[in-house]
Amino acid sequence: MKPAPFRYVRARSVDDAVAALARDPEAKLLAGGQSLIAMMNVRAVKPETLVDINALSALDYIKVKDGGIAIGAMTRHETVKSSPLVAEHCPLLAEAYHWIAHRAVRNRGTYGGNLCHADPASENPAVALVTGATMVLKSAKGERTVAADDFFKGVYQTAARHDELLIEVRIPSRPKGQGWGFMEVSPRKGDFAMTAVVCTLELAGATVKTARVAYAGIADRAMRFAPVEAALTGKPANEATFAAAGAAARKAINPSSDFHADEAMRRDLAETLTRRVLAAAKARCT
């Protein structure tokens, strides 16, 4: 299990990196490498050129910006996990990290790399969906932003063009009073999710004002489902509503079967976890 040979380019700056991408249509980015190198070791992928962006310390930051936090794409998972800013402005993201990988992998893996890898069972894309995150992409031609809802396209597929580098992720701060929840069932702790459900919930009195619910592990990408959120908006924030949202989730998703979880299991989990995660979120609405 050894990777196939590749050309190696060490980018010294963001400009360096985007120039390398522009130059070589076969080039692939090497961030923390915690998914990519594993896939290369089994030769599931054989990139011709790797542009190593680990030297881009300019992309390693977490800061408050425009009513939210901005996370540099090369920020390591462990930095995000232990960040007080993240805990304050995006407690859902901090919570999700209890489920994400293991220490040594988090020390190397990057937040941006994880999102761009777009594994359908990965937790962070689902969190990005419900928090309304925005991706800042840069190429030699300039910068653009893509909403998380438009970013994830399929298994390992995103809206980022080949010549684009994700440089920053912007996440709006949790609105005052908003509750949140994250629940997952995986074969082992730290494994990819069979099903994970993530939500944010805002109440107006005893009524759901807004709810966003996203799922991982049940489709070719992290997804939200309109019928689930419709089952919540404007409804009383109670068990019956949450159960209705769960039932809507069961119907809305179209999961496949694999060795760990068959289709029925994923539907069951989507329903149960939706109900539970909303109840947890309600308890956090202040």
Partner: peptide
């Protein structure tokens, strides 16, 4: 697992050039 600049890393998921 080895320590790289004091932090644990998987040496099988790291290229020596990194």
């Amino acid at each position: 697992t080895v320590l790289m600049n004091g932090k644990s890393v998987r040496s099988c998921l790291t290229f020596a050039v990194m």
